[in-house]
Amino acid sequence: MTTPLLAVQNLAVTFDTAEGTVHAVKGIDFTVERGRTLGIVGESGSGKSVTSLAVMGLHRGATVTGSAQLDGTELIGAPDDHLRTLRGRKMAMVFQDALTALHPYFTVGDQIAEAYRSHFGGTRKAAHARAVDVLGDVGIPEPARRAREHPHQFSGGMRQRAMIALALSCEPDLIIADEPTTALDVTVQAQVLDLLTRLQRERGLGLVLITHDLGVIARAADDVLVMYGGSAVEQADAEALFTTPRHPYTRGLLDSLPRLDAAPDTALRAIPGTPPSLLAPPAGCAFHPRCPAYAATSDTRCTGERPPLRTVAGGHRSACIHDEVTA
């Protein structure tokens, strides 16, 4: 058995705030293989972004425990000097809003060239040529000219492409894209997402795609991890998740999507309630206050211990006590 590109085990992240300790991520496991895309889906506060930052070692002021191995190299607890040589080079990140994630003072070309030179050295000229190349690779017209422009001179879609170019510039093995299309117009979203998946397939990259948008997952992910309140509540391949969702939360998410085959005036079914407080999370299953199964049964097991992920079918895991009942 070969080592997976990224293997995360029992990863937990806590923050100490003035109001108390926040358990942002409560022990999750997943693996990402080369050439595959893992989609992590969840609402704000579900811990999906924190997970990605913890893997990259970019969590500031947080305590991270557990294990995350990139190609067999342990990342958690590794000295920052070592992590730095991996960041950008072996694993790269695409951030949500390229307007704020790219530096306003420097040209796009300079920002890409800077990343390249910091890992490979070489002349400024060579690094700049490399920047123009990757800008071309991500479909930016006239890359040589655009490389000399500042981020604010780019359109939203082009800016996000530049962000992807920056991530690709040092030919990493793993790319983590955190809500890469959320800030974009709908039509541009599809283009950027297609670009990302095309590059991922062509180059055999491992891709972690973090989103709150099931549409994005459906379009791009091979495997899916559903997060709620800092824990994984369901894990499956994309096909299985969309055809036979097991966890009540996943089902709620799917029900809240508009469907083409529904009658025109069917109301969308939103999940009632709000995401849980991270400071004072509900006891037991974090989802129980909003869960229809709990509402119907008032099962004391829902409020007792946090239900663990259990295998419910081949490669399909879910963290619900009612699974047998509701399956």
Binding site: F15, S44, S46, G47, V50, T182, H212, S256
Partner: peptide
């Protein structure tokens, strides 16, 4: 698509405003 909740930037750190 899903309910467009506040963006991921607020995750974790944005916890205090969910308290009473």
């Amino acid at each position: 698509m899903t309910t467009p909740l506040p963006t991921a930037a607020a995750e974790g750190a944005g916890a205090p405003d969910t308290t009473e």
